[in-house]
Simulated scan of single mutants.
Amino acid sequence: MAFDLLDTLKNLFNQEFSQKAATQLGESESSVQKALGGIIPAILTGLLHKAGTTTDAGGLADMVKEISLAGNLPGKGADILRSLFGNRAGQVTGTIARYAGIKESSADTLLQTAAPATVGVVGQQAGGEDLNATSLLSFLNNQKEAILHAVPAGLGLKDVLGIGNLGDISRKLTGPGDVTGVAESRVRTRWIWMLIFLVAVLLLLWYWLRGCNTGGNTNTMDSVTTGQMEDSAIDAVMEESPARESIKVTLPDGKVLEAYKGGIEDQLVTFLKDPDTKGGKDQWFDFDNLNFRTGSAELTEESQLQVQNLVAILHAFPKTKVKIGGYTDRVGDSVANMRLSQERADAVLRSLQAGNVRPVQLMGAEGYGSMFAKAAADAPNEERKLDRRISVGVREK
C-alpha cells in the first residue's frame, strides 16, 4: 500500500491536538482545525516549491534529514518556515490567520509547531538516515499531486508564493528514480524510524501544549541575551507602572496577607474559595511581584514576600495541589531560555518546599521557555513582558 503522507499528518494533528491547542491559544476548536487544514498542505507546498526552484537539492535534503533525525525540535519551527518561504514567511502566517479567522500569534504558534513535525515525517519517509537529494525528490514527486490537491481553494497560497498557479510547482518539480522502488527497499527500516519519530513528536506536542498559561500580569522573567549575565544586576522587570491598590487578603485559617488588588494572592484565594470553580491543567495564576537577579535563578529579597504568601495560602487550603511553570519571551537563544525558565521554576518550588508546604501539594515545576510566547521577538517590550513570567497552576483544589 502506498504511503499516505497527508493522512499520517492528519492523524498526528488530530482532534485531541486541536482541542488542547484551542484551549491554550484562546481560539475555537473549529478555527484551529481549519487552520491546521491549511497549515499542513501549505508547509508541504512550500517544500515542493523549494525543491522545484532550488539549485541546491542536496542542501535541501540535508535540512530535511537534520529535522527528521533531530532529537530536540523546539525552536526549529521558525527556521524551517524561513527556509521554505524566505521573506514571505510572515505572509504565510497572515494568510493562515485570515483563512481560519484566528489571531496571527495563534497562526504563528501553530505553524511553528507543525513545521518540524511535517518536515520530519517527510524526511523519515524519504529515506531517514539514508535520505539524499535523489530520494527526497522522488518521494516529493510521488506525493505532489495529493499535496497540491489538498491546498484549500480559499487559502490564496499561490499569491503568497508569487506563482501563476499551483500546477506550476508540479511541472517544475522533477527528480530521478522511482519512489516506489526506493520505498520498498527500505520500508521496514523506515517504519521503525517512523514509529519512533511519531511517538517522540506526540510526546513533544503534549509537552508544548500542556500547562500553558492563558493569562498575563506583570512580567517576572527576562530572556537570555548578550549582556544579561551580570549577577549583581537585577532583572529589568520592575518598570515604572501605575500605583496599585493595596489590600488585605484573609485566609480561612485567619491569617491576613498584605497584597495588591488583582494580584496573585487576590485572584488565587478568590478562586480557591469559590465552590463553583475546579482545578485543572488550564487554571494558572501569574506572580506579579516576583523577580530574579539577571541571568540567574536567584530570587531577589523583595520577591520572598510573595513566595511566602503562596506558602501561607497552601497551608490554609491543604487540599490544593499546584504546579509551578516558568516562561520567557522569544528574545534570545531558545535553548538557553528553556534552561533558565526551568531553573527559575525550580527555585520557586524549592522556596515552597522550604516553607514546609506538604509534598503532596507540590506537583513539580516545569520550564517552557518561549514555547507559549505570544509576542514576536521584535515586538515592543510592553507586549513581550507579558510572556516573561512565573505561574502557579492549580491542578486540584
Results as ranks from 00 to 15, higher is better:
Leu110Cys: 13
Glu145Asn: 14
Ile102Lys: 04
Gln91Phe: 06
Ala114Gln: 05
Ala146Trp: 01
Pro152Asn: 07
Ala97Trp: 06
Ala126Asn: 03
Glu145Asp: 15
Ala100Trp: 06
Thr118Ile: 11
Gln125Ile: 10
Ala107Phe: 07
Ala117Asp: 09
Asn87Gln: 14
Leu81Met: 14
Asn72Arg: 14
Gly128Tyr: 04
Pro116Ser: 13
Arg88Gly: 00
Leu73Arg: 06
Val122Asn: 01
Pro116Thr: 13
Gly123Leu: 13
Ala133Glu: 08
Leu155Lys: 10
Leu140Ile: 10
Gln124Glu: 12
Asn72Trp: 12
Leu137Ala: 06
Thr118Arg: 08
Arg82Ser: 14
Phe139His: 11
Leu131Arg: 04
Thr109Cys: 02
Ser135Tyr: 02
Leu157Pro: 05
Gln124Ser: 08
Ile147Asn: 08
Gly90Leu: 02
Glu104Asn: 12
Glu145Leu: 10
Gln125Lys: 12
Arg98Asp: 14
Ile102Ser: 06
Ile80Asp: 06
Gln112Tyr: 13
Pro152Tyr: 04
Val151Ile: 12
Asp130Trp: 06
Gly127Pro: 11
Ile80Ser: 07
Gln143His: 08
Arg98Gly: 03
Glu104Phe: 03
Val92Lys: 01
Ala107Cys: 12
Leu157Ser: 08
Phe85Ala: 12
Ala107Leu: 08
Ile147Gly: 10
Ala150Leu: 06
Thr109Gly: 00
Ala150Cys: 06
Ala146Glu: 14
Ala97Ser: 15
Gly71Pro: 00
Ala100Gly: 07
Thr93Cys: 03
Ile80Met: 10
Thr95Met: 15
Thr95Phe: 06
Leu111Cys: 09
Gly71Ser: 15
Leu161Val: 00
Asp130His: 12
Phe85Gln: 11
Gln143Lys: 11
Lys103Met: 09
Glu145Gln: 14
Ala70Tyr: 02
Ile102Trp: 05
Gln91Trp: 04
Pro152Phe: 06
Ala150Phe: 05
Asp108Gly: 03
Gly94Cys: 07
Gly90Ser: 11
Glu104Ile: 02
Val160Cys: 03
Val122Met: 02
Ala126Arg: 02
Asp130Ser: 13
Pro116Lys: 13
Gly127Glu: 12
Gln124Met: 13
Leu155Ser: 09
Ala126Trp: 04
Lys103Gln: 15
Gly90Asp: 10
Asp130Tyr: 10
Gly154His: 04
Gln125Trp: 09
Ala107Thr: 05
Gly156Asn: 08
Gly86Val: 07
Asp108Pro: 02
Thr113Arg: 08
Leu155His: 09
Gln143Phe: 04
Ala150Ile: 05
Leu84Met: 10
Val122Arg: 00
Gly128Asn: 08
Ala107Val: 05
Val119Ser: 01
Val160Gly: 03
Ala146Asn: 13
Ala146Gly: 02
Asp79Ile: 13
Ala89Asp: 11
Tyr99Phe: 15
Gly128Leu: 01
Lys76Gly: 06
Gly75His: 07
Gln143Met: 13
Ala89Ile: 02
Asp159Tyr: 08
Asn142His: 15
Pro152Gly: 07
